Simulated assay, not measured.
Amino acid sequence: MNENYLSLNLATTRQQWGFAEAVDGCLRHGVTAIAPWRDQIAKIGLSEAAAIVRDNKLRVTGVCRGGMFPADTPAGRQAAIDDNLHAIDEAAALNADCLVLVVGGLPGSSKDIAGARAMVHDGIAAMLPHANASGVKLAIEPLHPMYAADRACVNTIDQALDICEDLGETVGVAIDVYHVWWDPNLAAAIARAGRMNRIFAHHICDWLVPTRDMLLDRGMMGDGVIDLKGIRAMIEAAGYNGPQEVEIFSSENWWKKDGDEVVRTCLERFSTVC
């Protein structure tokens, strides 16, 4: 059965609504799938967040985020692993489809990106037994190369899948169109992910031209240059028919609008341009 429908990543309304307000707003518009961030969960409390999810029969398409593994000391790397173990517990409590991993960039003054990627591999390997015991899938989210130094040294689906191949079937990918649309190997990489059954999440927004801020100026679907329907077709052909998760960071536009207007627009664009 094709169950493709919209999920709201709560980053999209983070300046308007907290966790409970965002759930109420989603339900007003018939949206029954969400993806919260850990700070939003912490603010309301994990037990309360879990109760809201359970009582409203919500699907949690992901918890954002784990990761940030590289550090320039063994103690720093262990602290990152410990934090990721807590993130697994949070994802398990919300019965999330996956814990999204933004893996981290170069530690300290390092210029060794291969070494940073090795730390990512080893960090995921260290958290994997607890994730498997908790029933939580781990979704590596490759980020655009502009973030390679500070946020994510894994920048393509293929790089993520190489890690997945080594670590097993419960480690997959979150495909965010904002980060991968430019990749000349995108079609082949998505097909590879499908053959491996490793597509755990599909995030959507748009790339604006011009983009005023590389982190905080994502576009609403249809306002930019990403071939959303084309990428969706690739992902569905690869076997993923789950929710498309709208994740928009927009400090000067959508974060300044009424939350209900944002959700209404997401639904309208989802039905017309995605």
Rank of each mutant, 00 (worst) to 15 (best):
M1D: 14
M1N: 11
N2V: 10
E3C: 07
L6K: 00
S7D: 09
S7N: 08
L8V: 15
N9H: 13
L10Y: 10
T12V: 09
W17A: 05
W17V: 03
W17S: 01
A20F: 04
E21W: 11
A22V: 07
A22P: 02
G25V: 08
L27A: 02
L27W: 13
G30W: 11
G30F: 09
V31D: 01
I34P: 00
I34G: 01
P36M: 10
W37Q: 09
R38H: 11
I41G: 02
A42M: 12
I44S: 00
G45R: 04
S47D: 15
E48W: 04
A50Q: 05
I52M: 12
V53S: 00
N56I: 10
R59H: 12
T61I: 07
G62Q: 03
G62N: 06
G66C: 12
G66P: 01
G67R: 04
G67A: 08
M68T: 07
F69T: 05
A71G: 10
T73P: 05
A75T: 14
G76C: 07
A80D: 04
A80K: 03
H86N: 13
I88T: 00
A91P: 02
L94Q: 03
L94W: 05
L99T: 07
V100L: 13
L101M: 13
L101H: 04
V102Q: 01
V103N: 04
G104Y: 08
G104I: 10
G104T: 06
L106C: 05
L106R: 05
P107M: 10
P107F: 07
G108K: 08
K111Y: 02
G115V: 13
A116W: 09
R117H: 06
R117Q: 15
R117Y: 05
M119R: 01
G123N: 05
I124F: 04
A125F: 03
A125M: 07
M127R: 00
P129R: 02
H130Q: 15
A133T: 09
V136D: 02
K137H: 14
L138Q: 00
I140P: 04
E141P: 06
H144T: 08
M146A: 11
M146K: 12
A148R: 11
A149G: 08
D150T: 14
D150K: 08
N155L: 06
T156L: 08
E165R: 14
L167C: 07
V173Y: 02
D176F: 00
Y178T: 00
P184N: 04
A188R: 14
A188H: 07
A189N: 14
A189D: 15
A191S: 15
R195M: 11
N197A: 12
N197Q: 15
R198I: 11
H202T: 04
H202I: 02
L208P: 00
P210L: 11
T211Q: 14
T211R: 12
M214N: 11
M214S: 06
L216G: 01
L216Q: 12
D217G: 03
M221H: 01
G222V: 10
D223M: 09
G224L: 10
G224K: 07
L228Q: 06
I231A: 03
I231R: 01
A233Y: 09
A233F: 12
A233G: 13
M234H: 05
M234L: 15
A237M: 09
G239N: 10
N241R: 14
V246T: 08
V246S: 10
N253V: 11
W254P: 00
W255K: 04
D258P: 06
G259M: 08
G259A: 13
E261G: 01
E261H: 11
V273Q: 02
C274A: 15
C274P: 00
